[in-house]
């Protein structure tokens, strides 16, 4: 293949035109990502001085050990896991139902999807305030609704550990179920009709057709949707920051949120760096998974 380089790939100064145009982006990206990345790894091994004049002290893995002894950190992973699993499950099920319905629409499909996708454009901070207002225990309309329907026994939603987590999840579901629905809808549109016809001729009932034909054809789309949502839930802490600030009694203090506390409330930089590095490690592993799936998708199924 190498000899067959076309006119497009002639080299100048050892780098093709394509190398030259890629260069600025790579350099800038390296400056703003790789340098901070190594900064973080190095600092995670230090006890970092806050006051000027003091010197950083090399402490080996003390920051990491301290993290695992910190029950808030360990619990943070559990809370994060609960947040992720419940949100994803609800968004997936509702999103799938919505996608199936949207797939049936004809003329009205455009206007309906346009209305439905509005929440995705809204700043997470704004979503936090919208729901903080709706869940307010003295004048929030959703609080009033839940009370009136007899679903809420306690006095306050955001003041109760279980309900507070539920409120955060509800806000997330409100904002991101449309995203899941639209991704799944795109997948549904690519389910080959001839396979469906064939299954129908074999006399397979709708449920069987769903599990035998529709689902297998949508695997890649489902994986992509779930992974992107997973990473975004790890990435954002805005709604928690607005609605509960991790409370009540740490009930919504996810591991991502707790990092914010460590770094910008306690200003413990060494530990924040260690914390951040572990969080990043988990996300990178997931990202690798995402890219693998995406490459497979490009080669085969979804296109």
């Amino acid at each position: 293949m190498e000899q067959k380089l076309s006119v497009l790939h002639r080299r100048k100064y050892g780098l093709s035109f394509y190398g030259w145009v890629l260069m600025p982006a790579v350099i800038l990206l390296a400056l703003i990502t790789i340098y901070p990345f190594f900064w973080m790894i190095v600092k995670s091994l230090f006890h970092v001085a806050i006051r000027p004049g003091q010197k950083d002290e090399f402490v080996w893995f003390a920051n990491y050990i301290a993290l695992f002894k910190d029950s808030l950190f360990v619990h943070g992973w559990l809370i994060q896991a609960r947040f992720v699993v419940i949100s994803l499950a609800v968004e997936f099920v509702l999103g799938f139902a919505l996608a199936l319905i949207l797939n049936n629409l004809k003329r009205s499909a455009n206007i309906v999807t346009t209305i439905i996708l509005i929440p995705m454009m809204i700043a997470p901070v704004a979503v936090g305030f919208l729901y903080m207002y709706l869940f307010n225990s003295s004048f929030g309309w959703y609080h009033w609704f839940l009370k009136s329907a007899g679903l809420l026994s306690g006095g306050s939603i955001l003041g109760d550990p279980t309900w507070a987590m539920a409120a955060i999840i509800i806000a997330d579901v409100w904002e991101w179920t449309p995203f899941m629905a639209l991704i799944l809808l795109a997948g549904l549109k690519k389910v080959p009709l001839d396979q469906l016809e064939a299954a129908k001729c074999d006399g397979a009932p709708p449920i069987k057709r769903f599990f035998d034909v529709v689902l297998p054809n949508m695997t890649s789309v489902i994986v992509i949707g779930v992974l992107i949502r997973f990473m975004d839930i790890m990435r954002y802490i805005d709604t928690i920051l607005i609605m509960t600030t991790g409370g009540p009694a740490g009930a919504t203090k996810t591991v991502s949120y707790y990092l914010f506390d460590v770094a910008f409330r306690f200003f413990d930089i060494g530990r924040g760096a260690a914390h951040g590095f572990l969080l990043l490690l988990v996300t990178i592993i997931i990202a690798q998974l995402f890219v693998n799936v995406m490459n497979k998708t490009k080669k085969g199924l979804a296109r």
Binding site: M234, A263, G276, L280, I284
Partner: peptide, 14 residues
Amino acid sequence: MAPAVVVIVPLYYI
């Protein structure tokens, strides 16, 4: 894909 909080910590000090 890096969590925003993770990126912010080093960026802040740099």
